[in-house]
Amino acid sequence: MNVVAKTARLWQLRQILWTLVLRDLKIRYARSWLGYVWTVLDPLAMSTIYFIVFVGIFHRGDVGHKPYFLFLVIGLLGWQFFSAAITDASRALLMEAKLVRSTNLPREIWVVRVIIAKGIEYLLSLPVLAAFAVAYGVQGKVDFNWRLLYFPLGMIMEFVLLIGCGLLLAPVTALVTDTQRVIRIFLRMAFYFTPIVYAVQKVPKEWEKFLWANPLTGVLELMRAGFFSEKVRWESVWVGLVVTVVILVAGVWSFGRLERAVLKEI
């Protein structure tokens, strides 16, 4: 199958891929020493704001699991990874136009390397999450359990989902000028369509099924499973997995179709 062949090819080129990822991170940190702080600061600031709004003003901390702040941090770190990776991956071919034009590498590499770089930034932000979890844990407020093992599965699922979305979006962005604006609006809407500030279990029954179609619902269910005693909504994970695979296959297919036009345009 096409997806398998492409993956195998990228695996052969892993050394080059790694060079590109390191370059990404190097540039990012060469520009500002706050680089790392930013990736963590944004989700933490947003967590604080949502905490104030929902707990301080509405007195509805029960829309999520308890402790609500930890619930928010997990959700917002996962979301930050998603939205930052989508934004950068959709620009991947345009930003590196010179490189894309001068090297004969499988063009998918330009998208994949952005997602890997963002994934590493996400991994680097996890110690902050661990710190909060431990802080709540010593107060006996966190129900740690063996389902923490689901956390990496959630990360892998989000990673695969991002590869698919990136491959879908990058060529379109290179061909159609307005795509980036559309993506920005879409991301803002998707934020509320994802159980980040609320838990999927708290959504009215008739609406909940719509959320299952959003693969991020399943991703966050897997990530949160180990910290809270609430049951995992497995339906959201299974549906999310199917959607993820469909997006990946569609991404690989459409990237191959649009590649030719993109190379002429950039």
């Binding site: 370059r23 190097k26 540039i27 060469a30 520009r31 010179k98 490189l99 034009r101 001068s102 090297t103 004969n104």
Partner: peptide
Amino acid sequence: GVAPLIELTGGFIGEL
């Protein structure tokens, strides 16, 4: 394999 002298400085990054 091909060594392209087409966009010579294509892969170079100003910041580094």
